[in-house]
Computed example of a mutant assay.
Amino acid sequence: MNALFRLGATAALALTIAAPAVAADATIRLSYGSPADPFRSNAGAMAAVFKSLVEAATDGDVEVALYPNGQLGRDTEQIDQVRSGLVDSTMASAGAIALHYPLVAVFDLPFAFPNIAVASKVMDKDSEFGQKFVADMEDKTGLKTLGMIDSGGFFAFANSKRPIATVEDMKGLAIRTMTLPSHQAMISALGAKPVPLSSTEVYTALQTGTVDGAMNPIPVMSYERYNEVQEYLSLSNHVITPTIWVMNRDFYEGLTDEQRTIVDWAAEVASDAGRGINRVIEASDTGLPLLASKMKVNAIPPEELEKFAEATQPAVRALIEEKYGAEGTAMLDALIANIDAVK
């Protein structure tokens, strides 16, 4: 994209998100990449609950303007917009966060979380590990963290070539990953080719065959309509990543004490709603049954999953140690310690 086009796009964006005609004391411009429907995605649910609670509790003095479906740009661009103050808040994938805070990679140690209950307890900004992680991320990025939840449960593999039941079945497949070196190391360790793409590019890449497949949680595959463009779904539960909700710190600190208290409370309740909708989608006809209506589904046997873990865990741990040094190792050890403490 040339500089002139980028300048024009930025100007158009500024006009698009201008404050409403009837101004409140403050307007929170909240962007996210998933659908607005609160029953289709965790971000949609979180945004709807947050908007309702904030506007009601402040008697309309603080408004929340929602920009779903990536209408303000890719997830990586939305964080840049929050940091610059063009947008006030966004709910970001780990891939987008990694460009600003690479240590989010510690969540990518394969098979680190034994079940969703443990993941929910640890993957929270107020958990023992969450407090350490958030404090460090805020210090390094200058962003305020409003919430942290799982992005939709454990990841599975979807592809258009064949069912995946063994590590050998991964060989040669071009698999879309987030822009996370840890995910790329994981896929490479399985003998497949990682192709990093933004979330807004995935459907087209799968549809056109630019990539053979992708890995994502079931709720994400559902709202991204993988069943329209992929034939096979293999349940691996190999990794689980966070959705991290951030806000421009200057904007947050510019609110009154009472408004900040309300925003913090509303974000906490909204995060619980996001966790809940993840589990609802997983358990309802809009989750796995929807995908299974058009895709061939298989569960990878436990003995084969052990081989997946043996292939991927050393690769991801080595990447964290080599790329992020003692700091990365300490953060990873803190995560594992918290997992061990609550499981």
Rank of each mutant, 00 (worst) to 15 (best):
31 S>Y: 00
237 N>Q: 11
132 K>F: 03
23 A>H: 11
269 V>C: 06
295 M>V: 03
20 P>N: 01
180 L>H: 13
110 P>D: 08
17 I>V: 12
89 S>N: 12
47 A>V: 04
134 V>S: 01
281 I>E: 00
143 L>F: 04
103 L>P: 02
83 R>I: 13
131 Q>T: 08
82 V>L: 04
290 L>A: 09
63 E>V: 02
112 A>S: 13
144 K>Y: 09
187 I>W: 01
195 V>H: 01
99 L>R: 15
3 A>C: 10
320 I>M: 09
86 L>R: 11
57 A>V: 09
106 V>F: 02
107 F>I: 02
60 G>P: 03
244 I>M: 05
10 T>D: 14
83 R>L: 13
144 K>F: 07
5 F>D: 14
217 P>W: 04
307 K>Q: 06
332 L>V: 06
159 N>Q: 07
263 V>F: 02
189 A>E: 01
257 D>T: 14
335 L>P: 01
39 F>M: 15
152 G>T: 01
133 F>S: 05
145 T>K: 00
167 V>D: 03
204 T>S: 14
264 D>G: 03
154 F>Y: 02
199 S>T: 13
124 D>A: 05
199 S>N: 08
91 M>W: 10
127 S>G: 07
242 P>T: 03
263 V>S: 03
5 F>A: 12
106 V>K: 00
123 M>H: 05
198 S>N: 09
193 K>E: 12
331 M>S: 07
115 N>I: 07
74 R>F: 11
305 L>F: 10
48 A>S: 14
320 I>V: 15
214 A>C: 12
301 P>K: 03
91 M>K: 08
156 A>M: 09
121 K>G: 10
180 L>V: 15
133 F>D: 03
197 L>Y: 02
57 A>L: 11
318 A>D: 15
336 I>D: 06
59 D>E: 14
192 A>V: 07
85 G>L: 02
256 T>M: 08
322 E>V: 15
301 P>D: 04
177 T>H: 03
335 L>T: 02
327 E>F: 08
183 H>S: 15
327 E>N: 08
168 E>M: 10
31 S>N: 01
308 F>A: 03
265 W>P: 07
244 I>D: 00
341 A>L: 11
42 N>L: 13
279 R>Y: 06
157 F>Q: 04
203 Y>T: 14
145 T>P: 03
204 T>R: 13
180 L>I: 12
294 K>Y: 11
313 Q>E: 14
185 A>I: 04
74 R>Y: 10
190 L>R: 00
56 A>T: 13
332 L>S: 02
15 L>N: 12
115 N>P: 12
30 L>Y: 01
8 G>M: 06
130 G>Y: 00
317 R>D: 14
288 L>W: 02
100 H>Y: 14
316 V>C: 10
204 T>Y: 07
257 D>N: 13
334 A>H: 06
13 L>W: 06
11 A>P: 12
172 G>W: 03
143 L>M: 14
322 E>K: 15
26 A>G: 04
200 T>P: 07
